[in-house]
Write a protein that binds this DNA or RNA. Structure first.
Lengths: 114, 114
DNA sequence: GGGCGTTATCCTTATTTAAGGATAGCGATA
DNA sequence: TATCGCTATCCTTAAATAAGGATAACGCCC
C-alpha cells in the first residue's frame, strides 16, 4: 500500500503540472520540443498539443519557437516559462515531503502490520 | 488560477480515495449502497463495481451486505471500513490545508497580479 | 537553390473510462 | 406464499483520452 497523488494548476482545465514541467526541463536541455518529448517517451504530437493548450490557459508563452534554420529550428524556454518551472520544482518537492509525512501519520500503522 | 489535486491509496490500482469515502459515508447514513450512490449522483452500477474493486485491492470487506429481507436488504460499513473512513476523513482535511498553504507560498504572488 | 531537422497541423484509429439498461435472486414480513 | 426494495451481475453503447501516421512550411547553410 502506498500513497499516490496528482497536483496541478487549474484555469479552464489543466494549466500546469508534472508533464509540462518535464517537457520544459527537456527543452531547456535540448533546445528542441521534439527531442524533449522523445526523451520522456511522449510523442511529439502530444507534446506539441500539450504546450499549445496550456499556453492558452496560462495566457502567456512558455517557449519561443524557431521554425527553420541551419539546424532545422528549435525552441527555448521563455523567462516566464522558466520562472514557473523553477517555482514548480520547489513546490512539487515540498508537496512530496509533506504528503509522505501525512500518509505515514494517518495510514502508516494501519497498513504496516499486513 | 487555482490548485487542483487528487490523492488516493494505491495497491494494484486505486484502493481508496474520495469516491469510496463519500460512498461509505452515504452507506453509513442510509444503510444502503443504492441510496448512497443516488445521493452523490453515482449510478448503482458504478458504485457496486467501485466497492467491489477496492475491496479486492484492500483485501478486506468495507461493507456487509444483506440480500433480501423485509426492507429488501441493505449494507452496513464494517468496523475496518469505518476505521479507514475515519482516518481518511482527517487525512484529507490536513492535505487540503497544507496544499493550500504550499500553493499560496509558491504561486500566490505569481498569479495574483493578473 | 537543395538539404536538413524542426515546428505546425490535420485526421484516423485504438484504448480506456463512463453511463446506463436489463434482469435474476434473495429473504423477512405481512 | 406474494410483496418489496436491495444486492448481484451482465452486456451494450457513448464519450473522453491516448497514439500515431502523414504532410506542409520554414529558413540557415553549403
Amino acid at each position: 500500500m502506498k500513497l499516490a497523488y496528482k497536483v496541478w494548476l487549474n484555469q479552464n482545465g489543466k494549466a500546469f503540472g508534472e508533464g509540462p514541467y518535464q517537457l520544459l526541463r527537456g527543452i531547456d536541455r535540448n533546445g528542441s520540443l521534439r527531442k524533449a518529448a522523445a526523451e520522456i517517451g511522449m510523442s511529439y504530437n502530444q507534446a506539441w498539443h500539450l504546450i499549445r493548450t496550456i499556453e492558452g490557459r496560462l495566457g502567456f508563452p512558455l517557449i519561443q519557437r524557431q521554425v527553420g534554420g541551419s539546424s532545422g529550428g528549435g525552441s527555448v524556454v521563455t523567462s516566464r516559462g522558466r520562472l514557473l518551472m523553477e517555482s514548480y520544482k520547489v513546490f512539487r518537492e515540498e508537496v512530496r515531503e509533506v504528503l509522505e509525512q501525512l500518509y505515514e501519520k494517518h495510514f502508516g500503522e494501519m497498513f504496516r502490520a499486513e
